[in-house]
Design a protein around this nucleic acid. Structure first.
Lengths: 158, 158
DNA sequence: CCCAGGATTCAGTATTGCCTGAACGTACTG
DNA sequence: CAGTACGTTCAGGCAATACTGAATCCTGGG
């Protein structure tokens, strides 16, 4: 009943230079890769960043040149982390994704979470090292303090 | 002319529970892995965090159960990033490594660098999207601003 | 000038993780 | 109720990465 690409998918970004768009998408891809995610996840994110309209799985797959299976997996991963959001459109059974409205928050939240995890590690080690060398104790204290400071500063920013 | 393990390598940390130590080292390993480094790099870092004495390549290799080749490669990588420092000891030709004295700085510097890189990406995209959708422009502006704020805050902390 | 002890490099291998096509499940439509 | 359109899951293939042992290089000492 639907035409293949309904109005919702009108392209609204960078239409003057599609090459600039794919370049950006690819850059975000390698960035995500360096952060421990898959390149595809980064590409999806980058692509959606530049799109006003929400995009369906097929559109993303076609656009990025990957299988629908990958897109399905990665979008749900990003959704779980609060980076993406599902949408629907009346008279359309497909699932659409867009970047979450309050985007900066989950992005920074993600970083914060990592720092917290490391912070926790340090604190545990500090507890166990009570009988150890003073230098090591001091070192861990210093790190814990620095991290506490930064985590608080970041938390306040959100 | 040296005995195999000279005084410098006396173990000073967590000697009450060596199992706690290896657990910590392993945790740091997986943490580094999630951050896009190799697990070995993380293990080396974790191990040196808990040692007052600087450790030689052989000691690290034996301790972590990896080849000396890996240790050599990864230590130099960590040194390049300012996380580790080389040391020597009189009458000993071996290379010793320890955690850098002002450790929190390079650690946070690394994070800062990553955020800056992403920030740069966003700014470039913003520039190219000038003729694109207002929503996308606004979104990118928002992200750029948030990142600018956090980067500045972090920079100030160092 | 040669030797020994150490670090580094490198080619080969093992492992990991990503991606895919196909099978499956599910919900809508006629 | 059958058919279809979609999303999800999964086994297998493939490419990238990390690790290793051996070869090479470098430096200090005899």
């Amino acid at each position: 009943m639907n035409v293949n690409f309904p109005i919702h998918s009108v392209e609204c970004s960078l239409h003057s230079s599609s090459t600039g768009r794919v370049e950006f998408v690819e850059q975000v891809g390698v960035f995500f890769e360096a952060e421990g995610f898959s390149r595809t996840a980064g590409r999806i994110f980058g692509r959606l960043l530049l799109s006003e309209a929400s995009l369906s799985l097929d559109q993303l797959a076609a656009d990025l040149g990957v299988s629908k299976a990958s897109v399905s997996t990665e979008t749900r991963m990003l959704e779980r982390r609060g980076v993406l959001e599902r949408t629907g459109h009346a008279g359309d059974r497909r699932v659409y994704y867009r970047v979450a409205p309050g985007l900066p928050v989950p992005t920074l939240e993600l970083r914060l979470e990592r720092m917290r995890r490391f912070s926790r590690l340090i604190s545990e080690a500090r507890r166990e090292v009570r009988r150890g060398s003073p230098l090591v104790r001091q070192r861990l204290d210093l790190m814990a303090e620095a991290h506490r400071y930064v985590v608080e500063a970041l938390g306040a920013a959100l």
